[in-house]
């Protein structure tokens, strides 16, 4: 038997981490190709609202998940169009994407605020009183396992497939990649849309299981945490997952601090992950001679000079 409070903490950690991790993994893929997308918050929001609306209207969970993923992906393609095809500034475009995403989702979801879901994303197996860590692990929401699978697949694809190598080459040195005949625009466009799809899945999880309801601005900064996670993880899937667990743990810990009898202010606990991320970044930069894992061309629009 393990402590019932500990089980609660572990559950909450895994759920919070899953939500953050999926969005972060998507951003990681986008950034690997050299495209910085600061619109994660907006993309999660779009996925969350479209998924929720579909679930209310059709009661079909699978369809809702697909709609959420697809609409976020299409939404991300605005960023791809503006930065990849039209070569405009990525920082600016990403920020506008966040504003637009939050506004559009608030507008779409106006009539859905406070509605109750008939069906939601289910847990794989329902163990009412998990008594050990293994039982906690096997009784998670299906999205948790999808996230684990996505992590393994992403890591494999990045390291061992042509697509992954191409992605990395484009992000590291677009000029050489171009002379090698790699299609830069196409690779970056796909990577941006895949990032959007992942953010959409994270959003769907938010409204169909994690919360589950819809209100304006319910992403409440999670998109920005996802961006920090990519940095924390040094643009590596497994380390990003570790970061997600840390951030998720702290998010789960905050409301429980008082029951454990700690005097520490929850607001101070909430900012520690950001401080840790900055420290990790500084340490990596100093001790690895600037190798933080960041793709070299991140944020730089590629333009082939014609003569």
């Amino acid at each position: 038997m393990i402590d019932i409070q500990l089980v609660g903490l572990l559950n909450a950690t895994l759920q919070a981490a899953t939500l953050l991790f999926i969005a972060a993994l998507g951003e990681l893929i986008t950034e690997k190709s050299g495209i910085l997308n600061l619109g994660v918050e907006g993309m999660i929001s779009i996925g969350a609202v479209t998924g929720f609306m579909t679930a209310i209207n059709t009661q079909n969970i699978l369809l809702s998940v697909l709609v959420g993923i697809l609409s976020s992906s299409v939404f991300a393609s605005i960023h791809a169009l503006v930065t990849v095809v039209l070569k405009q500034d990525q920082t600016v475009s990403g920020l506008i994407l966040t504003i637009l995403g939050l506004a559009v989702s608030a507008l779409l979801g106006k009539n859905y605020v406070g509605k109750k879901l008939e069906t939601k994303l289910e847990n794989i197996s329902s163990i009412n009183e998990p008594s050990n860590i293994l039982e906690v692990l096997i009784s998670q929401n299906i999205i948790f396992y999808i996230a684990v699978v996505l992590m393994i697949i992403t890591s494999y694809v990045l390291k061992n497939t042509m697509f992954g190598r191409r992605l990395e080459a484009v992000g590291e040195d677009s000029r050489s990649s171009d002379s090698m005949g790699l299609k830069i625009a196409k690779t970056q466009f796909i990577a941006t849309c895949v990032g959007g799809a992942f953010a959409g899945l994270s959003g769907v999880y938010l409204t169909l299981s994690y919360v589950p309801y819809w209100t304006d601005n319910m992403t409440s900064g999670r998109g920005w945490i996802a961006l920090a996670l990519v940095i924390f993880g040094g643009w590596k899937p497994y380390r990003t997952a570790l970061g997600a667990l840390l951030f998720g743990f702290l998010e789960a810990l905050v409301p429980r601090l008082q029951t454990y009898g700690f005097e520490l202010s929850p607001y101070i606990v909430k900012i520690t992950p950001y401080i840790i991320t900055i420290l990790v970044l500084i340490i990596l930069t100093v001790y690895k001679g600037g190798i933080t894992g960041a793709p070299k061309n991140i944020g730089v629009p590629f333009f082939r000079e014609n003569r």
Binding site: A228, L281, T285, V286, G290, T292, A294, G299
Partner: peptide, 8 residues
Amino acid sequence: FGVNEIIT
């Protein structure tokens, strides 16, 4: 140290 200022 040259730490990326966008992130910090």
